[in-house]
């Protein structure tokens, strides 16, 4: 049996094992890779960075734990950036298991922002992030399309109270904040079809600036909305998160993870090449043998 025949019959579990070994090696070897920031990510960072203090950013955390690998780093980077710029944030979680994701991110970032830090050469004093003053978490409601439409009229229709049960009218930050007209932009971090609803029923109906943070699987199919101007920026997968972290000078899990992506991708490309060579050589031999 030739090496190509062996390759064609190779148990896929050996491929998994090899890839796992490469990822673990890449994780523990200390090195860094350059992160090139694309214009579609830069436009989101620039937009948030240019907002005056006190403006409201709406962050829709529409993903479940299954997507946290790619989208949680985006949430952390954007939230930290917004809070350091003294912006106010409204959160929703229109995905079934999203409230847990949002709750965890809010707790972690609240701790992080309480520390003194320097980003891009600018020193930021730590400050206390307070619920109802600096942010409001509206929580989850089912049937996202209807919720997105109703929030265009008034946040209070679908969310009479926030996630913690406080009436919206009792929340200082929400006084005078009725609907999307009162937010500077909306950033949807999504791992599913909710993004389509934000584009059609949200941005398309109420015409607010919309940016997307998407899982890698979804990213390619949403680029047409960038070109049409329906969204002003896209962050795609862990790479998009790493780009935002790089721009915000706030290295986190995404930049750390991109180190492992490099050897993993090299191995996958090599496997694809070897697999194709094996396939064509075997097929050629079978043709010559008249099979």
């Amino acid at each position: 049996m030739s090496i190509f025949d062996r390759l064609m019959r190779l148990d896929r579990r050996w491929v998994f094992l090899f890839l796992t070994a490469v990822c673990i090696a890449g994780y523990y070897v200390d090195y860094s890779i350059p992160i090139r920031v694309t214009n579609e990510t830069r436009s989101i960072y620039t937009f948030i960075d240019s907002l005056p203090p006190g403006d409201i950013v709406f962050v829709a955390i529409d993903y479940d734990p299954s997507n946290q690998a790619e989208l949680h780093p985006m949430t952390y980077a954007i939230m930290e950036h917004a809070f350091r710029k003294n912006l106010k944030v409204i959160f929703t979680a229109l995905s079934q298991n999203g409230p847990g994701m949002a709750d965890q991110a809010i707790r972690d970032i609240t701790d992080s922002v309480s520390l003194d830090r320097t980003y891009n050469g600018v020193e930021f004093k730590g400050r206390e992030i307070r619920n109802g003053i600096d942010y409001t978490f509206l929580g989850y409601k089912p049937y996202y399309a209807i919720i997105i439409l109703s929030m265009g009229q008034n946040f209070r229709i679908s969310f009479p109270t926030d996630y913690y049960g406080t009436p919206l009218d009792s929340i200082p930050m929400m006084r005078g904040v009725l609907n999307y007209d009162n937010v500077a932009c909306l950033i949807d971090l999504s791992g599913g079809n909710i993004t389509d609803a934000w584009i059609s029923y949200g941005q398309g109906r109420y015409n607010f600036p919309l940016a997307l943070g998407l899982t890698g699987v979804m990213t390619a199919q949403y680029y047409p909305y960038l070109n049409s101007g329906q969204v002003f920026g896209i962050m795609g997968g862990m790479l998009g998160a790493a780009q935002y972290e790089r721009m915000a000078d706030n290295p986190g899990l995404a930049i750390d993870g991109m180190r492992v992506q490099l050897p993993a991708h090299i191995v996958i490309v090599l496997f694809i090449i070897i697999g194709n060579i094996g396939y064509f050589v075997t097929r050629r031999r079978e043709q010559l043998e008249g099979r």
Binding site: T20, C23, I24, Y27, S66, Q68, A69, E70, T215, G216, V217, T219, A220, Q221, G236, G237, M238, L239, L253, D256, G257, V260, Q261, A264, H265, I268
Partner: peptide, 18 residues
């Protein structure tokens, strides 16, 4: 799409490693 999908799948594993 395939390239992004590969990155997504590896991202999941990296996240669990972390």
């Amino acid at each position: 799409s395939f390239g992004f999908t590969v990155m997504a799948r590896i991202s999941l594993f990296i996240n669990r490693l972390q």
